[in-house]
Amino acid sequence: ERVRARYDYEAQNEDELSFKKGDIITVLEKDDGWWKGRNGKEGLFPSNYVEELE
């Protein structure tokens, strides 16, 4: 599954994923509120910062 970033997100910890608004992220795992994904790097990000691609 792929999602698009709705906002910029700056990683707060080294296991998190940074991205810019409009970036496409491949979702690897979904957990409550935090998803694991890849966009060149791999890490956790808040699920409310992304939207599913149509």
Rank of each mutant, 00 (worst) to 15 (best):
E1C: 15
E1A: 12
E1Q: 14
R2T: 11
R2V: 12
R2D: 07
R2E: 11
R2I: 12
V3H: 08
V3F: 11
V3K: 05
V3S: 03
R4G: 01
R4P: 01
R4M: 10
R4C: 08
R4Q: 07
R4V: 13
A5Y: 01
A5P: 02
A5K: 03
A5T: 04
R6G: 05
R6N: 06
Y7L: 12
Y7I: 09
Y7R: 13
Y7F: 14
D8Y: 04
D8W: 05
D8A: 09
Y9T: 04
Y9V: 03
Y9C: 06
Y9M: 04
Y9E: 00
Y9I: 02
Y9N: 04
E10V: 14
E10C: 14
E10K: 11
A11G: 10
Q12E: 10
Q12D: 07
N13C: 12
N13T: 11
N13M: 07
N13L: 06
N13P: 00
N13I: 03
N13W: 06
N13F: 07
E14Q: 12
E14Y: 09
E14T: 10
D15P: 04
D15L: 14
D15H: 14
E16N: 04
E16K: 01
E16P: 03
E16M: 05
L17Q: 01
L17Y: 01
L17K: 02
L17V: 06
L17P: 00
L17E: 00
S18A: 06
S18L: 01
F19E: 01
F19Y: 02
F19C: 02
K20S: 09
K20G: 05
K20D: 03
G22I: 04
G22M: 05
G22K: 03
D23A: 07
D23N: 06
D23L: 02
I24R: 03
I24V: 10
I24C: 08
I24F: 09
I25H: 02
I25G: 01
I25P: 01
T26S: 09
T26W: 11
T26L: 13
T26Q: 11
V27T: 02
L28T: 10
L28S: 05
L28Y: 08
L28G: 03
E29I: 11
E29F: 13
E29Q: 14
K30H: 06
K30C: 06
K30P: 02
D31W: 15
D31F: 15
D31G: 15
D31P: 10
D32Q: 13
D32S: 12
D32K: 14
D32I: 10
G33Y: 15
G33T: 13
W34M: 12
W34E: 02
W34K: 07
W35Q: 00
W35M: 08
K36A: 05
K36S: 04
K36V: 10
K36P: 00
G37P: 01
G37W: 00
G37V: 03
G37D: 00
R38H: 12
R38N: 10
N39A: 12
N39W: 10
N39P: 00
G40F: 10
G40V: 12
G40T: 12
K41M: 09
E42T: 14
E42M: 12
E42K: 06
G43A: 02
G43Y: 01
G43M: 02
L44G: 07
L44S: 10
L44Q: 08
F45N: 01
P46N: 08
P46S: 06
P46H: 06
S47C: 13
S47P: 14
N48E: 14
N48M: 11
Y49T: 07
Y49L: 14
V50M: 06
V50I: 09
V50T: 07
E51F: 06
E51L: 05
E51Q: 08
E51S: 07
E51P: 02
E52P: 15
E52C: 11
L53R: 05
L53Y: 14
L53V: 11
L53W: 12
E54Y: 13
E54N: 13
